[in-house]
Amino acid sequence: MAARSLSKLPTVPQSSCRRTPHTSSPPVTRNFRPNTLRSPWLGPKCLSLQSSSLRPPVPKVRLVTATVSFSLPNAKPERVSSTEKAPQWSRRAIKSFAMAELEARKLKYPTTGTEALIMGILIEGTSLAAKFLRANGVTLLKVREETIKLLGKADMFFFSPEHPPLTEEAQRALDWAVDKKIKSGDGGEVTTTDLLLGVWSEVESPGHKILSGLGFSDEKAKELESLSSEPGFVDD
């Protein structure tokens, strides 16, 4: 009885049971041109996908040399005659001054003093003055330690300005270096040696006291000046 009922069921053709292979249609490519990116709420202007607009913004590079050079003193009008040219600072001297300002900020001092000028010379490290100091046992760590002993630690919550102003002793040291170069008449640049000797000329300054305590003397100053005066010497 069951077999007879099953025989009466409609049969499905075998061909209709087969699955037809799926054929994927080719991907639709859209060309996003600037003209197709118009929008009524963006105004009449359209966005541009040109390569120039996709470039990341180039950060503005601040030239330390240009910034620091404005802080360094050049010859005052009364110092130079009309026929003379005001001396400029050498590249190493400018970098040493920049490092001095940075060191004053790291120590959280409100000003850049003669002690910071010495540390700036040592941090720059490639000049004759820096090599001469290290050869005579005057290192950055020693100068930093003596500075803290002499001037003390600053308030940890104090924020030093970006360009800590010069102390009176440091300003006179820089002026001394410029005057020395003018008097020499060689027409060269003011070097780190002139800067260091300018610090040494300020007898009552912290920089002079620190140098003296670390073994620097008038004899050493004359030796350094003699080395910098040798023919062919260039300390740019």
Rank of each mutant, 00 (worst) to 15 (best):
S96I: 05
K95Y: 08
F97N: 06
R105K: 09
P110R: 15
S90N: 05
S96N: 11
W89G: 00
R91T: 06
A104D: 08
R91V: 05
A100S: 13
A116M: 11
I121N: 12
I121V: 15
L117W: 04
R92G: 07
G120C: 10
S90E: 05
A98G: 14
Y109C: 00
T112C: 13
T112P: 05
T114V: 03
A104Y: 12
R105E: 09
L102I: 05
A98N: 14
K106N: 11
G120M: 08
E103N: 12
F97L: 03
T112S: 05
M99G: 01
I121K: 11
I94C: 06
A93M: 07
L107D: 10
G113I: 01
M119S: 09
K108I: 06
L107N: 10
A104W: 12
P110D: 15
K106W: 08
T114N: 03
K106S: 15
L117E: 08
G113E: 01
M99V: 02
I94H: 03
L117K: 03
K106I: 06
M119K: 14
T114A: 02
G113Y: 01
A104C: 09
A93I: 02
I94S: 06
E103D: 14
A104G: 10
E115F: 01
E103L: 13
T112A: 02
E101H: 13
Y109M: 01
I94E: 07
Y109K: 02
T112M: 04
A98Q: 13
A116V: 01
L107M: 13
G120N: 07
Y109V: 00
A93D: 07
A116D: 11
G113W: 02
W89K: 00
A98V: 06
T114L: 00
K108G: 01
T114Y: 00
L107V: 05
I94M: 08
P110F: 09
A98E: 14
I121E: 09
M119W: 04
L107F: 09
T114G: 02
W89L: 01
T114H: 02
Y109N: 05
E101P: 02
R105F: 08
A98R: 15
Y109H: 14
F97T: 02
M99C: 14
R91Q: 07
L117T: 09
A93S: 10
A104T: 04
R92S: 07
S96V: 06
I121G: 10
K106A: 09
L102M: 13
A100L: 10
Y109S: 02
S90M: 06
Y109T: 00
T114F: 00
A100R: 13
G120E: 10
S96A: 15
M119R: 14
I118K: 00
M119C: 13
G113L: 00
G120L: 05
L102V: 03
W89I: 00
Y109L: 02
E103V: 15
S96M: 10
P110Y: 13
A98Y: 15
L117C: 10
S90C: 07
A104L: 07
L107G: 12
K95T: 12
E115A: 04
E101L: 14
